[in-house]
Amino acid sequence: MKKMVGVKCEECGRISYPERTFCISCGSNRLKRVELGDECELVTYTELYAIPVGIDQLPLVLGIVRFKNGARATGQITTREVKVGMKLRPVWGALRTIRGEKVYGFKFEPIK
């Protein structure tokens, strides 16, 4: 199963997602890959009715989530039953079409 992976800075401890070359906080290149985990919490969200070309869900539910290790990520939420603070887990799936090509990535589904 695919896992969400970010980076942890060995200089300042900052965890960021997605993977990158230099730390977003201190600029260091001493970054170590870390798994973000299987559980996160919804920080904020929107139900988007003005969807961009390439998206076929209406409304599209988007949110920012926070993992236990402090990492944050943005993505689609698979339900319209949304509430700030709800527990979610990352799942791999089709996200949208970009120039005719299907694009895949992580989205977030509720943990029952």
């Binding site: 969807i51 988007l62 993505g75 970009i98 990535g105």
Partner: peptide, 9 residues
Amino acid sequence: TAEYIHGVT
């Protein structure tokens, strides 16, 4: 990759 591909506008 963190925003656009998810449909973020």
